[in-house]
């Protein structure tokens, strides 16, 4: 039985929302970065599903670029986490509010 594309959309929407909720409710910065990875993967699923259903390979090329950006984001994000940990021996998001009022 053929899988309709709306199933892929629902799946990617669910994963994106789980990632969004993770960013909003977790306080560990590492988990927040992992949740961002979840959201990027949700968009990747979307891209590949549409690329396959439309018979157009450009979607897969864009997933490739998204992967590149994700790798760069992880490298810089983890470097920032390490710098933060050196600065204040914590990676709890509640401890870093010096940019707030």
């Amino acid at each position: 039985m053929e899988v309709p594309i709306s199933f892929y959309l629902v799946l990617s929407g669910l994963v994106f929302l789980i990632g969004l909720v993770g960013v909003l409710i977790r306080r560990n910065i590492i988990i927040i970065l992992l949740s961002i990875e979840l959201m990027l993967n949700a968009t990747n699923i979307n891209f590949v599903a549409f690329s396959s259903y439309l018979g157009n390979l450009s979607g897969q090329v864009f997933v490739f670029f998204a992967l590149t950006v994700a790798a760069a984001e992880v490298a810089v994000g983890l470097a920032i986490i390490i710098a933060l940990y050196r600065h204040s021996a914590s990676i709890n998001i509640d401890d870093f509010r010096m940019l707030k009022w």
């Binding site: 929302l17 789980i18 909720v21 590492i30 390490i82 940990y85």
Partner: peptide
């Protein structure tokens, strides 16, 4: 990084977790 930082586990969610769940 997780192993390097040797974290202790986190006890609670963010205090805004209700808002986050509602938004989701």
């Amino acid at each position: 990084v997780v192993m390097l930082l040797n974290l202790k586990r986190e006890e609670h969610f963010h205090h805004q977790w209700l808002v986050g769940l509602f938004l989701g």
